[in-house]
Nucleic acid binder design. Structure first.
Lengths: 201, 201, 201, 201
DNA sequence: CATGAATGAGTATTCATTCAT
DNA sequence: CATGAATGAATACTCATTCAT
């Protein structure tokens, strides 16, 4: 990668980061392209060199941030001392929920976008293979712990949807209860969902 | 209610209906107040006699449409010949999912707004008590079928979130599978969630 | 016509006149919609209430100005004491050429647009019947002076094209000669063209 | 001319040709410098090595294309077996009109630019002497056929203007009639114009 | 010579909102 | 109450031009 390409990558990243700050700060709708380039310290035209429009940037940003989140969760999981499948699920759940609690703007932005669609997209769109690693680990864990799960995708889908949508309400609006109060129920529900999708050995 | 009030109510409803058509047709962001009044056959100024702005109308519309949906589900449930709690849950689930399948624009609009927040809002905001009836029925059913559920709100919340977010993906994008393929898993998951929140007798 | 309609007509005319001043002053391409509304003392949005865009205004302006020119020529012809067909032709020619000499910006604007296409357009587009009167007079004159002209449209077309395009060069650029020097040749050519299209009696 | 110069000439020609395709395709105003260099497969900066701006290129292109047209007409005339002055005029007229009919984009581009001004310009601007040859031939023919024409430039001017502006309407818009229908009248008019500018022997 | 990333002034166009009728 | 003409701030997007490589 030459000097020019380095420079280009850096410009693009600056735009993405500036946009993220603004989107999480004042919301997507109220953020203008002018705001973004001003924050990034670049010229208006430069924006259009890297993104088709504001929506294009947003989509790429969602995929990027979601991928990043799964990647971090995966890394932490590797470090942790866990020896059964359910514990892995709950660990990742807690990690993601913890991130959301610490970074509510991130949650607000990813909001209800943390769904299967994005999960798929991060796999394909992102140059990096971050989500792929996470997914591979998931599949391997099923095998490692001898979990007989005929439809692993559907199980993962169900869990991600439940985590995402309950986080939104409990963390951002404390509705119907805070996430700390809800977490035990979420854990129990996830384990039960695991039961639905797996056969006893 | 006098003739004038009738007239006013009718204008408001016309605006709501026109807005719904446009929001589901070309999306909220791309729908302008001009579009709405043109579709409604009213003057621009008239809009502001009934709504503060586009966002005000949208919020009222979400509450209205969501309330309507629950109300219909409730009415159908009353007509049906059902004699246990889980069957009631699955009946309502199937009714709502069925509506979404038939009216995908409705799903797209309510989309991920069909959450606890809206559910609460319909209870308070809407003049009508539609959702209240649905909620009362739910509480009564727990009692009628002797279901020992210490946190009925949390159970309802968990179910609504799961139904809403999985519908979005399975119905609108057939991702990861179609709703018809996913429904058995959704049913099983809901029953398991019911177990999480209830104590055996 | 009510007060409001009067007001609207006046706004539209103000925009047309302001645009004409600017188009003839600094050229069509360099005139912006902002310039036009500023000159007219109106708001930007008002422009789009009356015209689709700058091009729409230009087209309407060409038709309007061309029609006006023919109308004036026709009125002057009515006043003049002329008793044969060729004299009428030369009188109108001189009148139009005279206008162009006095109002070179008008010539520059109408430029090579003073062609059969515009002539037709003024007949249809303009609400007024100005050009129609001119055309009717032309047809009647052929009859009045017993001129046997099987294709009056083609004759008029040929003359208008020749007058328009030679005016452009001779008046605006004095190329190849000034209009005063060229006029005798133009007259002679027009009379000869009349001969081409008419049968001797 | 060295290899480098060849290369330069070729780049310039590529730009001219690309611009011509685009100008005739989507119009001058809507064609951008970016479009031109993309079509030419060159870099943006390269454009400015050869032309001052888009307008500079256009002017050179008009002169070039018009000169080319006259040059071809002249060459064909040389090959043809023609023995009187009027026939030469009509031959050239038919050749030019024929080109326009076959290449309507060319007509649209040269459009009303095919005037005395351009004719003059091609004589001076173009490095080549193409138009000069055409003009010399014209002057020589007057002499050869003993045509007594005191103002040859004015005669040529009148004819070119008439041919150009009638072609525009009849060929591009079939207004007021098609060129095939109009051609006899054009011929007759040109011969009559010749009469205007020449003295009988 | 050639490149193409970067620039940022410039422009068209939209649209929520007001208010005189 | 209802209207819809008028407003003008706000914004997206373009594109000619430059200049470091």
């Amino acid at each position: 990668m030459g000097k020019v390409d380095d420079n280009k990558k850096q410009k693009k990243d600056t735009l993405l980061q500036s946009a993220f700050n603004l989107f999480t700060g004042k919301g997507f709708a109220k953020t203008t392209v002018s705001d973004i380039v001003k924050e990034a310290g670049l010229a208006k035209g430069t924006f259009y060199l890297y993104f088709k429009d504001k929506y294009d940037l947003r989509d790429k940003l969602i995929a990027f941030k979601a991928g990043q989140l799964f990647d971090e969760a995966h890394k932490e999981l590797d470090k942790a001392d866990i020896h059964d499948f359910d514990s892995e699920i709950l660990f990742v759940t807690d990690y993601i929920v913890g991130c959301f609690q610490k970074q509510q703007p991130l949650l607000r932005f990813l909001a209800k976008n943390l769904s299967w669609g994005v999960f798929q997209e991060t796999l394909n769109t992102t140059g990096s293979l971050v989500t792929e690693k996470f997914y591979d680990h998931y599949i391997e864990s099923l095998d490692r712990y001898h979990v007989d799960c005929p439809s692993p995708d559907l199980m993962l889908f169900t869990m991600i949807e439940l985590i995402g949508s309950t986080s939104y309400n409990c963390i951002l609006h404390n509705q119907p209860v805070s996430m700390d109060e809800y977490r035990p129920y979420l854990h129990a529900s996830l384990v039960k969902i695991r039961e639905v999708f797996t056969n006893p050995q």
